[in-house]
Design a binder for these strands. Sequence first.
DNA 1: CCATTCATAGCCT
DNA 2: AGGCTATGAATGG
Length: 142
Amino acid sequence: MIYFYDSPLGSISYEWDGAICLHVWLDKHAAAVGENENPVSLWLDAYFNAESRELPALAKPATGFQAKMREGLVNIPAGEVRTYGDIAKELYTSPRAMGQALGANPLPILIPCHRVIAADGLGGFACGLEWKKKLLKFERGF
DNA sequence: CCATTCATAGCCT
DNA sequence: AGGCTATGAATGG
């Protein structure tokens, strides 16, 4: 089932099957129904109140590499950023592979891929750079 | 300092 | 095998 969440930064939709979160979209997804009480909306409530909360169960990554990358990402504290190169060094991989894997991540925000930027700028963001900017600005405390 | 080029690893066809 | 990245570092002007 696809749910809709109206955040202070914009519309978020996500797919929740009752046990795990399968996808997150950073816009109003077609066929989204109203909000309801589930671990994802609770997590988003906490996030936008600058509180920390245990992540809901998430869909398993497609590959082992993406799983490893996810582990690395969730350890980045809110408000901090890393570069693609930094993460690549930690994971003994290359910056390009980071971009490829991050772009394939179906769970933006929950997996904080917006905290990964290029060495000399913002880098990219699958759901629109505006979101990346807004999220980083928000996490820095405006 | 800007533009181009190459190295790089993972994934898709 | 070849091509594609949400890169980064080196090189040449």
